[in-house]
């Protein structure tokens, strides 16, 4: 091949190589983009307080809410004091979870909620929840953690039982302030 074709080939090679490097970067750009889209559209905002309007308690219906919990790691046990409650849609419900740290190490954790069935999640409006912020728990300590929520009155008739589950994750690298408590 002639000399100019070689030169134009080199230029083309450079352009295409830059393009592939940029696309590698774009793969990483998808991460903040994904978070931004979730933020703007309100998808996946499970650890923020929900806004509730004027609620009317619907005494004609009852829904069983089960309280489940999982702990990841050996530092703690998370358990609801009541394993289930029978509630009316629109009624303000408060439950207490107990978090116990039997280990020798103080840790910081974050609870992530999950719902079963998944589509019921949109009807559980959390007003206050320990999952809205991180929890510090010292070695040997036990904490009582509240959750307050309302089941929206528009919940479909075929929903009779909703499971609310929390999983406790350790926040790696967070430092516990020993003096605070």
């Amino acid at each position: 091949m002639s000399q100019d074709v070689k030169v134009t080939n080199r230029i083309m090679l450079r352009k295409l190589a830059v393009m592939s490097v940029l696309m590698f970067g774009f793969g990483y750009l998808l991460v903040p983009l994904y978070e931004k889209i979730c933020d703007v559209t309100g998808i996946n905002q499970i650890v923020k307080a929900d806004e509730i309007g004027n609620t009317q308690v619907d005494d004609s219906r009852t829904i069983i809410v089960e309280f489940d919990s999982n702990s990841r790691g050996e530092h703690w046990y998370l358990k609801a004091i009541d394993s289930k409650k029978t509630v009316h849609p629109g009624e303000l419900v408060e439950v207490i979870y107990e978090l116990h740290n039997p280990s020798e190490k103080s840790v910081v954790g974050q609870a992530i909620p999950s719902y079963g069935p998944a589509y019921a999640s949109q009807y559980i409006k959390k007003i206050d929840c320990f999952c809205f912020k991180q929890q510090e728990i010292l070695a040997g300590q036990t904490q009582r953690l509240p959750v307050m929520f309302v089941i929206d009155s528009s919940v479909p008739d075929d929903v009779h039982t909703i499971t609310l589950s929390f999983t406790m994750f350790e926040v790696e690298g967070a430092i516990v302030d020993e003096k605070e408590s």
Partner: peptide, 25 residues
């Protein structure tokens, strides 16, 4: 291929750093 193979490479690199280098993608 030039447009999407690097994105796959990025995705598996994120998996790799999640596995061994403490990232949390």
């Amino acid at each position: 291929l030039i447009a999407v193979m690097p994105v796959l490479a990025g995705a598996v690199t994120m998996t790799l750093t999640d596995r061994h280098f403490g990232t949390n993608f």
